[in-house]
Design a protein around this nucleic acid. Structure first.
Lengths: 190, 190
DNA sequence: GTCTATAGCTTGATAGAC
DNA sequence: GTCTATCAAGCTATAGAC
C-alpha cells in the first residue's frame, strides 16, 4: 500500500535537516523549507501545527533517535572499544557529509533564547557526551578522565566542523575523526 | 571638539558585533541592529549605503584591524613564545567574553554563499592561522608541524566556543585557552 | 493530506524634512 | 547626520476548497 503522504517523513526530515543546518533557526524561512521539502506552507502547518518551532523540535527528536540508535547505541555494546569508536567515526563521517555539513545543535543554538529549543539541544549534547564518556570509561580511563576526554572529543568534532565550514576544506574534520579512538581510550594521549 | 555623531563608531561597532555574533547574518535584522546601536534605519543607511551586507563587511574589517593590532601583532614580536601565546590567550579571553560570546567568523559563515562575505571571512581566518603558525615556527617546530598545530589551535578555540554556547558552560573555552602555549610550542604535545 | 488564497506583520531599503 | 514616513517584498500563520 502506498503511503498516504506525497512526501514521506524520511524525505521531509532529510530536507528539514539540510535547511536548518545550513541556515540556523532564524535563517530557515518557511519559503526555504517549503521549497526544499516540496510541501506547501499549509501542508507544513498540517504536519506541524506549532509552526516553525515545532518543525525544529520534531527534527531534533528525529535526529536524536537516529543518533541514539545508529551512532551511540553501537558505541556502548560489546567488543573492542577502539573498534566501536572507529565505527562511530564512520557514522559521523556520513552524518556530517565528510565535514561539509554543519552540526544541527550548533546552528540551532544561535539567536539566543528566543525559542524553547535550548532544553532539547542541551539534552541531545548530554546524551552524546555521556555515550562517549561511557566507552572511554570501559576502555579503562577513570570516570573523571573519561568525561573530560568525551568533552574534548566534542570540542574536536564541533571545532573541526566550524573550521571546515569557514575554510571550505573538510580536512580538519577528517583529521579530528582519526584522533577519536586514541583520544577516548589512551590514558597518556596528551 | 565633540564628535558630530551622536553614536561613536566604537559604540556602534561594539553593538554591531554583539548582534551579528549572537544572531548570525540572516538573523541580524535591521530592527535588532537599530535597537542595539541606537541608530534609526535611515541613519544606518547613511553610514552604510550598501545596507546590511556593508554593515557586516565593515564590521569584519573593524574586527580584523582590532585582531591584527591588539591580538596578533604582539604574538609575533620578540620574547619568549609561550609568554606571547599566553598574552594572546588573555586577549582572546576578553574578546570572547570568557567563552560566553561566539566567534563572528563562525556565525557570519552560516547561511551559504548568499553574500560576498565569504572571501573576507576566509582572509580573516587565514591571517589568524598564519600568525599562530609563525609563533609556533619560531618556537622551534618545523614549518609543516607549526601550521598543523595552528590549525589544531583554531579547532580548539572554535570548538570550545561552540560547546560553551550549547551547554551554557564556558569552562571548555577556558581549558582550551590553557592548552594553547603547549599546543603551539611543544614538539611532543600529542 | 494537500492545495490556493489571503491576512497581518516584519523585513530591507528609500525619500525627503530638519 | 539623524529623523519620520513610506514602499514593495518577504515573513509566519490561518481559512477553507478539494
Amino acid at each position: 500500500m502506498m503511503p498516504l503522504n506525497k512526501v514521506s517523513d524520511q524525505q521531509m526530515f532529510d530536507q528539514l535537516l539540510e535547511v536548518f543546518r545550513v541556515h540556523g533557526y532564524e535563517g530557515a524561512s518557511l519559503s526555504l523549507i517549503s521549497e526544499a521539502t516540496g510541501l506547501k506552507r499549509a501542508s507544513l502547518y498540517h504536519r506541524f501545527p506549532g509552526g516553525k518551532e515545532e518543525m525544529a523540535k520534531s527534527l531534533l527528536e528525529h535526529v536524536d533517535e537516529l543518533f541514539a540508535t545508529e551512532i551511540l547505541a553501537p558505541l556502548n555494546e560489546s567488543g573492542d572499544p577502539k573498534t566501536r569508536i572507529r565505527q562511530m567515526a564512520r557514522h559521523l563521517d556520513a552524518f556530517y557529509q565528510g565535514g561539509r555539513g554543519s552540526c544541527l545543535l550548533d546552528t540551532l543554538s544561535l539567536g539566543g533564547t528566543n525559542t524553547g529549543l535550548l532544553k532539547d539541544i542541551h539534552a541531545s549534547i548530554s546524551a552524546w557526551t555521556d555515550a562517549m564518556a561511557t566507552v572511554a570509561r570501559e576502555s579503562g580511563l577513570s570516570a573523571a578522565k573519561a568525561r573530560r576526554r568525551a568533552e574534548e572529543a566534542l570540542v574536536q568534532i564541533q571545532g573541526s566542523l566550524v573550521v571546515a565550514r569557514i575554510t571550505g576544506d573538510p580536512a580538519p574534520f577528517m583529521r579530528a575523526l582519526k584522533t577519536l579512538p586514541d583520544l577516548l581510550t589512551d590514558p597518556d594521549y596528551h
